[in-house]
């Protein structure tokens, strides 16, 4: 069986959304689209227990606030990957508000939160942040590829 799911990848500017997708995906459109209309579409097929899941990834251009992103981009999404930068506090201090802003019109959306750039911070800090930040997250590194594949596959599994 083959199914398709829309996954929105959002988060502050420079947290590494596009790099994470680049790590995970090989098929992709030109990067120019991202700067033109603020979104770039990528696709990755993942096998989940015999079901082929086509993840259509909407890479949303980084903004300071989710409220500035066209709402229509989030409508109809089956999954959300919210990415923040473990080395920059300003990208996770308003995590709850940002995720609420995105998911308020779409309560059934499956959300995964990723703390990216784990290669830049100390393991002790990651553990501290896991107790400080009210939402559970998975640490990833687009640079080393650490946990990237697992993060996308877990979301694919949750969506079916």
């Amino acid at each position: 069986m083959e199914i398709s799911k829309k996954v929105v990848v959002a988060g502050h500017f420079g947290v590494g959304k596009t790099s994470l997708i680049k790590r995970f995906v090989h098929e992709k459109f030109s990067d120019q689209y991202l700067t033109t209309i603020g979104v770039k579409i990528d696709k990755k097929q993942v096998d989940v227990n015999g079901t082929s899941v086509n993840m259509i990834l909407w890479d949303i251009a980084g903004e300071q606030s989710a409220s500035k992103i066209p709402k229509n981009y989030f409508i109809g999404a089956h999954g959300l990957l919210y990415v923040f930068d473990l080395s920059r506090e300003e990208t996770y201090k308003d995590l709850n508000d940002q995720i609420f802003e995105i998911t308020k019109g779409n309560p059934d959306i499956h959300t995964s939160v990723l703390g990216n750039k784990s290669d830049l911070v100390d393991k002790v800090l990651i553990e501290e942040l896991k107790t400080e930040i009210p939402i559970s997250f998975r640490n990833t590194s687009a640079m080393t590829g650490d946990n990237v594949e697992e993060a996308f596959k877990t979301l694919a599994t949750n969506m079916i």
Binding site: E27, K43, Y73
Partner: peptide, 19 residues
């Protein structure tokens, strides 16, 4: 890829509608 064209068309449509 047809899936990606479909996504891109929808993104353009959404962008126009929102803008």
């Amino acid at each position: 890829d047809q899936d990606m064209i479909a996504g891109m068309l929808t993104a353009i449509k959404s962008f126009v509608k929102d803008s």
